[in-house]
């Protein structure tokens, strides 16, 4: 069993999860991920590593409450335990001197980008972070990124914070202004990553994306995370999670992500009717009722 050092809602639906797991904390590198379960009957899900503390033996992820497994995860309390925490998994990011690195993150990706940005800064690269959210109240960790990046831009869909637009709008503007990054990262929802891929194709950018596929074992055995990059079948768990964004078959990826939707919905239905969700409340920032 692994102790939950912290489970806290950062902004609505986005939670930070810190687990005491020295075996992962000792070895984990930026860009890697872990696989965990919320309970003995829980589904195994992969989460990107958003921070780690080798001394304290802790590993941190930022996750989005998006389905049955993460809804259960979001209801765990600090001080509790989870039965499975496996990692580090996947290949670490390649961090080499490459001049300017632009990192675009949205949703859980704002967290997942953080250790990668930190590593590039440490390697002497100029780091430009572009953080996107639908709206001002979904932004988090802006200060953390400001502390390690050379420049941080905030983008919101409705213009309620930073500039109006999404991260690739900002990148387009920077490129138009003459920026020539040696490396670009995009981590977040598939719309962000696939839009970034289109832009990379047009402007001939070296783009890395971290794929968020369905995964079971995370060691290349189950094949659940199969994707296609450069026309070759790949496993996101052992060949990735990072891939050249321009080479990814996005349509195939979306189709595979939808494959288990009916089962997911049936599980959510059972969870809802079990009353387990009705009785517990995630920690919100506003007043509670009921």
């Amino acid at each position: 069993m692994y102790e939950i050092v912290e489970r806290r809602q950062l902004v609505p639906d986005h939670h930070v999860l810190t687990i005491h797991a020295p075996h992962v904390a000792n070895k984990v590198q930026p860009g890697q991920f872990v696989i965990l379960r919320s309970d003995e009957e829980g589904e195994r899900i992969p989460l990107s590593v958003a921070d780690f503390d080798r001394e304290a033996g802790t590993v941190t992820s930022v996750f989005l409450e998006a389905g049955a497994a993460t809804m259960k995860l979001a209801r765990l309390e600090t001080g509790g335990t989870i039965p499975t925490y496996m990692g580090p998994l996947g290949k670490a990011s390649e961090v080499e001197p490459c001049g300017t690195v632009v990192l675009m993150g949205g949703c859980y990706g704002i967290g997942a980008l953080y250790p990668i940005a930190r590593a590039h800064r440490a390697a002497g690269n100029r780091v430009i972070s572009i953080l996107e959210a639908h709206t001002q109240w979904l932004l988090y960790w802006t200060e953390r990124h400001q502390a390690i990046a050379d420049e941080v831009y905030v983008m919101t869909s409705d213009g309620t914070a930073g500039e109006r637009g999404l991260s690739f709008d900002k990148l387009t503007a920077l490129l138009d202004g003459g920026l020539a990054p040696g490396l670009v990262y995009a981590i977040g929802c598939t719309f962000l990553m696939s839009s970034a891929a289109k832009l990379a194709e047009e402007r001939d950018l070296n783009l890395k994306v971290a794929l968020n596929t369905v995964m079971v074992d995370g060691t290349g055995m189950c094949g659940g995370c199969r994707c296609s990059a450069g026309g070759e079948p790949k496993f996101a768990c052992v060949d990735g999670p990072e891939f050249d964004g321009r080479a990814v078959d996005w349509e195939g990826l979306m189709a595979r992500r939808r494959a288990y939707r009916p089962q997911e919905l049936a599980t959510m239905r059972r969870l809802d009717s079990s009353g387990k969700l009705a009785s517990s409340k995630p920690a919100g920032k506003g007043p509670h009722h009921g």
């Binding site: 902004v11 609505p12 009705a278 007043p287």
Partner: peptide, 15 residues
């Protein structure tokens, strides 16, 4: 959107 927007942070009532 000329006004600031706040999420009220209320839990979803599933009772």
């Amino acid at each position: 959107m000329p006004y600031p927007v706040e999420h009220r942070g209320l839990p979803v009532d599933r009772r």
